[in-house]
Write a protein that binds this DNA or RNA. Structure first.
Lengths: 123, 123
DNA sequence: CCTGATTGACTACAGCTGTAATCGTTTATA
DNA sequence: TATAAACGATTACAGCTGTAGTCAATCAGG
């Protein structure tokens, strides 16, 4: 499973939300703050097809792009790689670092609690 | 703050544990499974000095390397970047992904609980 | 039918990463 | 003292990433 680069991930996110867009649609769907040219977007889409993260479906003289890799699979493997490399696979230090920054909402904390309860229920 | 590459991080880890090693010491400290040559290690150390993650202290005709960047600062900023990019800064999905893989030990879970308690105590 | 816009294909190119060879100097050793 | 070993500096080079230009084909509008 090839790596998805930072700049490519934006396009994956758009296509996970709206599969089947053409290159120009993806370009249009970017936030206005994103100044990458349509050409750049096309190059990135081609690379994602090479990496088999997207499938290009011909539609006349253009292509419609569909994710092959799911958002969840990508998130799971990226998360595992990250926690492995930095913390030997432990989750607690990650949460600790995020907690320090004051970036966790009440909702996030509640969600964490639920996950912990679930984990403790497993035997 | 420049990025620390994957291959460079191994060296940082060694030097966080044992500051003040020379290039050959760092090379010797690598696990035997690591086949990178001494030359490669020297190149990586130079790059880390350029990136100001290490300071090179002259000792005769060689250098002793000391981390400038702390392990904690690096972990914190890498973690924030990661969670931001993948999950909009939320911590729960990260833990959820790690939990799925069955990779969390009881100790890890206990640690998470403690962090949660701490977070809830904050008002 | 001509012309301008659109599209994918191909090419470009600099910066970063991973890995190492080579070179010139210095030091230790025989 | 001659030579080998060790050292930092410089150079190399391929793969990945970020960004885009150019080109040839095609489509839409006048």
């Amino acid at each position: 499973m090839k790596q998805i680069a930072r700049s490519e991930l934006d396009l994956m996110n758009i296509l996970w939300d709206q599969p089947g867009l053409a290159a120009s649609d993806v370009h249009a769907a970017l936030p206005r703050s994103d100044s990458r040219s349509l050409q750049t977007i096309k190059t990135l889409l081609s690379r994602l097809v090479e990496k088999e993260a997207l499938r290009a479906e011909r539609d006349g003289r253009r292509f419609l792009y569909h994710p092959t890799l799911t958002r969840d699979d990508h998130a799971a493997s990226a998360t595992r790689r990250f926690s492995e490399r930095l913390f030997g696979g432990r989750a607690a230090p990650i949460v600790a670092h995020l907690a320090k920054g004051d970036g966790l909402s009440d909702a996030d904390i509640a969600e964490l609690e639920a996950i912990i309860r679930e984990l403790k229920a497993r035997d």
